[in-house]
């Protein structure tokens, strides 16, 4: 015979009733959906952090994953576009920025790239920025070469502030630029003065071979055919103007056999004569003396 079971009671059991009411409780719902998961996650993090091996492993794994993500080819910088640079400078820039190609654009440090570009003598200022999707754009402002500075055999290109731009193999690379020499000739003050002297040279210009810095304080202007104009440390331009006026007099002392014209002390120009002139001066003096004597 089939077993007869009493019909199931439709009334909720006490436990079920309590559980369901608990689930309906708003405070409990809030706890279960917000606080409990939060606590659980925090506890998990705390536990992992408290186990040093686990923590290290986790950190290592995390770093690995991070690097993997960063080094994906999709993020690499692949193109370098350079604006405002001459072809030879551009090549130098490319050499300088070679390290960025293939590196991740996510970790790219634009400041560092800019510093590296600006470290080049030719570059006065530069901007570096990443352009979507994978191009590094560098725009540079180049220095204007103003002078050539000679130290022994070495030639250096200087800009108007005296900053070194590049080394030169020969003057022929920049035939139009004036030459300076001497220790301390590249200070901004000296360079500035030298540029003004070259500009003001006027008629003297074609004869001016260059300036030599003496004692890191004043200039000697060396003329093509020998004489040296020793300019004072102060008011060098006035002294130069004096020389120019002097050259317009019929005597034209600088075309004579003069090794130097000393203008270092204002109001007391001094000529240093060449050996021939000195001889003739002696001769002249002797003749006069003789005549007087006679």
């Amino acid at each position: 015979m089939r077993e007869v079971r009493p019909p199931r009671d439709y009334a909720p059991t006490r436990t079920g009733f309590r559980i369901r009411r608990l689930l309906r409780d708003q405070a409990f719902q809030k706890f279960a959906t917000v606080w409990a998961p939060l606590l659980l996650v925090l506890a998990g993090i705390g536990w992992v952090a408290s186990q040093s091996e686990l923590r290290n492993a986790t950190m290592a794994k995390f770093d690995e994953m991070k690097n993997e993500a960063l080094e994906r080819p999709e993020f690499a910088v692949t193109r370098l576009s350079i604006e405002g640079a001459a072809p030879d400078v551009e090549a130098a820039l490319r050499r300088q920025l070679e390290y960025t190609l293939g590196a991740s654009s996510l970790t790219f440090d634009a400041t560092r790239a800019r510093r590296r570009v600006e470290a080049l003598g030719w570059v006065r200022s530069a901007q570096a920025r990443l352009e979507a999707p994978r191009t590094l754009n560098i725009s540079v402002t180049l220095c204007q070469p103003a002078l050539i500075w000679r130290r022994g055999e070495a030639l250096t290109l200087l800009d108007a502030t005296g900053a070194a731009i590049a080394r030169l193999e020969s003057r022929a690379e920049h035939p139009g630029l004036p030459l300076i020499a001497g220790v301390g000739a590249n200070t901004p003050k000296a360079v500035n003065e030298a540029i003004r002297i070259f500009k003001d040279a006027g008629a003297l210009g074609p004869r001016l071979r260059g300036l030599v810095r003496i004692g890191e304080r004043r200039w000697n202007a060396v003329l093509n055919d020998g004489p040296v104009v020793m300019l004072p440390a102060k008011d060098a331009l006035d002294a130069l103007a004096y020389v120019k006026v002097l050259e317009q007099t019929p005597e034209k002392p600088l075309t004579k056999d003069v090794t130097a014209i000393d203008l270092r002390i204002r109001g007391r120009p001094t000529l240093r004569l060449g050996p021939d002139a000195l001889q003739s001066l002696h001769d002249g003096r002797n003749a006069t003396a003789d005549g007087e004597d006679a």
Binding site: F17, R20, R24
Partner: peptide, 18 residues
């Protein structure tokens, strides 16, 4: 109690609140 629980459960279920 069973009857009360049944009625209350139905009402709470409908109200969606405790």
């Amino acid at each position: 109690q069973k009857a009360i629980r049944t009625a209350l459960e139905r009402a709470e279920k409908m109200a969606g609140a405790r």
